[in-house]
């Protein structure tokens, strides 16, 4: 990897941008669904035909609120790595769900993938491409050597973070 590429790959501000974009998108997708009657999302879930009817309301509502909470946590940089892993896991999960529907020939008029505040892709192919790009950026975020700028985690730790790092170094020695 060239020096420039490494500088870009591990740049805290590049990582900040990835974090804020992915967190913001998840938050808005979830918020768009949360403010609507949840029944609407349950109807979309029914189309995927993967869950027994009685599990759709609890799983549907949980997914909506997980999107909102994890999205805002990632956006703010709170429990950053945990949130980033959950977002990555959800992206994989959504991609598997959409792919299986496409492979089974289920017509997805509304895939329930956006929510109402922002529309990023409407057809399954567009949504899968979007999710793949988001997943790639999240993996970049997770495996970068630096940490993103302006994390609430760092602000909370404040000078304590330095103490923790010194101790960790001593432990390694």
């Amino acid at each position: 990897m060239t020096h420039f590429a490494r500088l870009l790959f591990d740049n805290p501000w590049t990582l900040f941008l990835i974090r804020v974009l992915n967190g913001g998108i998840f938050f808005l997708f979830g918020l768009g669904k949360a403010v609507q009657p949840h029944q609407q999302f349950y109807e979309v879930m029914k189309v995927y035909d993967i869950l027994p009817q009685q599990f759709i309301p609890p799983v549907g509502s949980t997914l909506i609120y997980v999107d909102v909470i994890i999205g805002i946590f990632l956006f703010l940089g709170l429990f950053t790595r945990f949130s980033a892993w959950v977002v990555s896991g959800l992206l994989v999960f959504y991609m598997v769900i959409i792919s299986q529907a496409v492979l089974r020939g289920i017509p997805l008029e509304n895939c329930g993938c956006s929510g109402g505040y922002i529309e990023l892709g409407t057809t399954p192919a567009q949504v899968l491409t979007r999710d793949l790009i988001m997943l790639a950026s999240m993996l970049w975020f997770l495996f970068a050597k630096s940490r993103s700028a302006l994390r609430l985690d760092a602000w909370v730790a404040g000078s304590d973070e330095d103490v923790l790092e010194i101790t960790a170094t001593e432990d390694e020695e």
């Binding site: 609430l152 985690d153 909370v156 304590d160 973070e161 103490v163 923790l164 010194i166 101790t167």
Partner: peptide, 15 residues
């Protein structure tokens, strides 16, 4: 180490 432990606990609580 003790300071770090305290800092860790206080940071976790704040978080």
């Amino acid at each position: 180490k003790a300071n770090a432990g305290n800092a860790q606990r206080s940071a976790a609580l704040k978080k």
